[in-house]
Write a protein that binds this DNA or RNA. Structure first.
Length: 121
DNA sequence: ATTCTTACA
DNA sequence: TGTAAGAA
């Protein structure tokens, strides 16, 4: 199928599908005319990409983990491949740090907000 | 009609 | 990520 078909079947824009390819997430074959040719398995692949993106994983990590998951028909099933667990754990820690920074920012804003509201009253 | 690449008010 | 432009 070509990019338009995949876009329709996945709900992901053609622009984004090309971006996924740039990031090494999809490797469609090329037709003689230069058009991208996707396989049927790419439909599930895109769903997996969306799932991992939603989990906060960076595309570089997703590119590697994509080969470690298979499709159970409707959901992504992570299989224990080498590096899978450590990668996920490392990303979890990375997210925890991001959350900490955001909480610090929120605390700073709360302080400023409390101050300005106090002066107002 | 579709897709491709490149570039950015 | 969208959209526009110019080409195939």
């Amino acid at each position: 199928m070509r990019i338009g078909d995949l876009a329709r079947e996945t709900g992901v824009s053609r622009r984004l599908l090309r971006y996924y390819e740039e990031q090494g997430l999809l490797r469609p074959r090329r037709l003689a005319n230069g058009y991208r040719e996707y396989g049927d398995t790419d439909v599930a692949a895109v769903r997996h990409i969306r799932t991992m993106l939603a989990a906060g994983l960076p595309t570089a990590v997703i590119a590697r983990l994509l080969a470690c998951v298979h499709d159970d028909g409707d959901r992504m099933v992570p299989s224990a491949c080498p590096g899978m667990v450590s990668s996920l754990q490392r990303e979890r820690r990375r997210l925890a740090e991001t959350i900490d920074r955001l909480q610090t920012s929120q605390q700073a804003l709360d302080t400023m907000l409390a101050t300005v509201l106090e002066q107002r009253s």
